[in-house]
């Protein structure tokens, strides 16, 4: 066994490739998180790592306590993998999130395809610490790394016909076991589709997130690129996006199509309008025992209530 190696002994094939290095490091960090114990992993220990050198904090940050990295990456609603919230972390390990292309189309000057890393280079992301409120009445505080969506959209020169933005998740049953369905049908119609009104998409709060806790987006959180719309229920924040189209009609989003009585197009967080099967008045912040009141627009009313002045939020839930 050779104990001392001269640098020249390291052949190029022994140098860990960037992607592999990242995978291994993620694995090591994930196991470190596990060792520190569920729910109590200190948020600071992981924030030190950065996949985004020179990352700067952006506006709108909440100073509430962040949900631990461990909880954020082990408790995921990601039906493409499984309807069980603990499964995505296990099933997403081998997910291939690079190379990854996003196709932009519809009412824009020129149809374009971007590699995700190209997009990150072109539109430097910022850190945005937002509340996330799931439609199932639980919530988290997550330090996202994201590109304000309006920057990307403006660069695409949308025409006046672009009234809505339609987003689509990757369709790949080989990688997404949840897309294969069972004897009794599939949990949802695939691919997952979401939509925003153009003014919602252009709002400075709306992000194309490419990471969290200073790292590239973990697979189970919607790698490599996902939407984050913090004043809407989590299901609006579509994951693993491959297609973004600017369109003239309101897109039919997946959950609205699945159960129109329960999930609307807008899905703004609203404590006054219950889900037919549970109350939306309160929520459980992950890591806390008792429930707390849910705030209108998830606490972002000051920024976004103006968008909905002429809209009846009871019928447009």
């Amino acid at each position: 066994m050779i104990l001392i190696q001269r640098p020249a002994d390291i052949t190029p094939s022994e140098i860990t490739s960037e992607g592999l290095f990242r995978q291994r490091r993620n694995l090591i960090m994930a196991s470190a998180g596990l060792l520190l114990g569920g729910g109590i992993a200190p948020a600071t220990g992981v924030a030190a790592v950065s996949d985004f050198p020179g990352l700067k904090p952006g506006p709108f940050a909440t100073d509430e306590e962040k949900t631990s990295f461990q909880a954020v990456t082990s408790y995921n609603n990601f039906y493409e993998f499984s309807t069980d919230k603990r499964q995505p972390a296990k099933l997403a390990k081998a997910f291939k999130s690079r190379p990854w292309t996003i196709a932009f189309g519809g009412e824009i000057a020129k149809q374009q395809r971007f590699d995700v890393d190209e997009l990150i280079k072109k539109f430097p992301p910022q850190e945005r610490i937002y509340r996330l409120r799931c439609v199932e009445a639980w919530s988290m505080v997550i330090p996202w790394v994201g590109i304000p969506l309006h920057r990307v959209l403006k660069a695409l020169n949308p025409s006046s016909k672009a009234q809505y933005v339609r987003f689509e998740t990757l369709l790949d049953p080989k990688q997404f076991p949840g897309q294969r369905g069972s004897l009794f049908g599939s949990s949802l119609d695939w691919p997952y589709v979401e939509g925003l009104r153009i003014d919602e998409a252009m709002h400075p709060l709306t992000l194309l997130a490419v990471g969290l806790y200073g790292r590239f987006m973990p697979n189970q959180n919607g790698a490599p690129i996902r939407l984050v719309v913090p004043w809407k229920y989590g299901f609006k924040s579509i994951k693993s996006i491959v297609k973004i189209d600017l369109v003239d009609k309101q897109p039919l989003n997946t959950w609205n199509r699945q159960a129109p009585r329960e999930y609307g197009f807008y899905a703004n967080v609203n404590p006054a309008v219950d889900h037919p099967r549970w109350s939306q008045a309160r929520e459980r912040r992950i890591g806390e025992w008792s429930k707390r009141p849910t705030l209108p627009f998830n606490g972002y009313a000051e920024q976004v209530a103006g968008l909905y002045q002429n809209l009846d939020l009871r019928t447009n839930f």
Binding site: G37, G38, G39, I40, Q70, A71, S74, Y75, K85, R86, W138, R284, I286, G287, W289
Partner: peptide
């Protein structure tokens, strides 16, 4: 041993 899901009550 802290092995419940992140939302232990659920």
């Amino acid at each position: 041993s802290h092995q419940l899901a992140a939302d232990p009550i659920k």
